[in-house]
């Protein structure tokens, strides 16, 4: 089954819409779903032109395709456990929160908190991801616990903050405090980033470019070969009695 949701133009286009009901399994029983624009509850078809092709018995066989100006659409794919969501443009905050299975593919950019606290499944973002991609929640002690997030563009600040499990790959550069508070999992940044793995406890962080503002409390262990690259291996963060691994191609201290 393929459900296409085309965003309608709205007068108050700037008020964000929360649409955690947009997960494949909900469409197994029809399209009578509700979303919220600010404090107003709206029917799905008040916000989208809805069309359904084919049918399905299980969420795995459902694909939801979002088109139009969806960059203010929040919480799409929250608690996703099966099926696929394809976003043709950009997507708003908290896409794929808490997801445990299934796939989200975003052709444009993703706003903040993409895949926050996710436990499984796959997110692919063809554009850039804003701050807190694959991160944890305020006050929480564990961020993402499993699954994969792959961003082909750049990532913002606090990428994979408190990462506890799973894999995060960013093909472009990442921002400041990349992998802060990591306690597990694997983070790979193909480009440059700033202050990677600050306060890390455990896990592995790879920076194929340059680590700017390198944290001074990582201990240099030596060089390793990784995927055809020569990387410098550090262990830390000593300030946090950490036992994590940080691999960088190059690094600069703020000395």
């Amino acid at each position: 089954m393929k459900v296409t949701l085309a965003m309608k133009p709205a007068a108050k286009w700037f008020i964000p819409i929360e649409a955690e009901s947009i997960v494949p399994k909900n469409f197994l029983s029809g399209t009578d779903l509700r979303v919220w624009r600010g404090n107003r509850e709206l029917r799905l078809d008040e916000v989208f032109s809805v069309s359904v092709e084919g049918d399905a018995d299980r969420a795995e066989d459902v694909e939801v395709v979002l088109s139009g100006d969806t960059f203010r659409l929040k919480r799409v794919g929250e608690y996703l456990d099966a099926g696929k969501i394809t976003v043709l443009g950009g997507i708003g905050m908290h896409c794929g929160n808490f997801m445990s299975g299934g796939t989200i593919e975003i052709h444009g950019n993703a706003d903040g908190w993409l895949g926050r606290e996710m436990a499984g499944g796959t997110i692919v973002c063809r554009g850039d991801a804003a701050d807190y991609c694959a991160s944890g929640y305020r006050g929480g002690r564990k961020g993402m616990k499993g699954g994969t997030v792959e961003v082909f563009g750049r990532a913002g600040d606090f990428l994979a903050e408190s990462l506890a499990g799973g894999t995060v790959i960013v093909h472009g550069d990442a921002g400041d405090m990349t992998g802060a508070e990591m306690r597990g999992g694997t983070l790979v940044v193909h480009g440059d980033c700033s202050r990677p793995a600050a306060n890390m406890k455990d896990g592995s962080c790879y920076v194929y470019g340059t680590a700017r503002g390198m944290i001074p409390t990582f201990k240099k262990i030596g060089t390793v070969q990784h995927d055809g690259r020569t990387l410098i291996r550090f262990s830390g963060d000593l300030a946090n009695r950490g036992k994590g691994n940080l691999f960088v191609k190059g690094y600069e201290y703020l000395d």
């Binding site: 600050a198 306060n199 001074p216 409390t217 201990k219 300030a239 946090n240 201290y253 703020l254 000395d255």
Partner: peptide, 25 residues
């Protein structure tokens, strides 16, 4: 922009790990 680095360094030094700290932070 260097506060964080200085704070990390101080934490390590308080734990007795001054030897791993670069000459200036």
């Amino acid at each position: 922009g260097g506060d964080y680095a200085v704070l990390s360094a101080l934490r390590a030094i308080v734990q007795g790990k001054a030897d791993t700290i670069p000459r200036t932070v």
